[in-house]
């Protein structure tokens, strides 16, 4: 039972997930949820890369996806550390209330 998925279906799934990620990053106020939406978008991009790697019989896409995962890990670590730092000083994680640069 080897799978036979068409590339457009895979790309459509990636597009839908990416769109959900963008909507989440734009409409939510909680910084944690925004970070999660960014992770979602990175995963959708990974899915697209892997689908093309499968279509082109090329393992290079897998190395790219591997690097994307590593970068996502670094981004999550630093982003969450920033969030914890802001929470420590401002006692909030709402993006509407983090306006220090404005004042």
């Amino acid at each position: 039972m080897s799978f036979f998925i068409s590339l457009p279906h895979t790309l459509a799934l990636g597009a839908i997930l990416f769109t959900i990620g963008i909507i989440g990053a734009l409409i939510r106020k909680n910084a944690l949820i925004v970070l999660m939406s960014i992770e979602l978008m990175l995963n959708a991009a990974n899915l697209t890369v892997l689908a093309f790697a499968r279509a082109r019989h090329d393992n290079t896409g897998h190395t790219l996806a591997f690097i994307v995962i590593a970068v996502a890990a670094a981004e999550a670590a630093v982003g969450l550390a920033v969030l914890v730092g802001i929470f420590r000083t401002r006692r909030t994680s709402s993006l509407d209330e983090i306006t220090m640069m404005k004042q």
């Binding site: 790309l11 597009a15 839908i16 990416f18 769109t19 959900i20 963008i22 909507i23 734009l26 409409i27």
Partner: peptide, 15 residues
């Protein structure tokens, strides 16, 4: 939020 949802829906439709 309206802009966010509109942008997202536009993107999905285009995709």
């Amino acid at each position: 939020r309206g802009v966010g949802v509109a942008a997202g829906v536009f993107l999905a439709v285009r995709f």
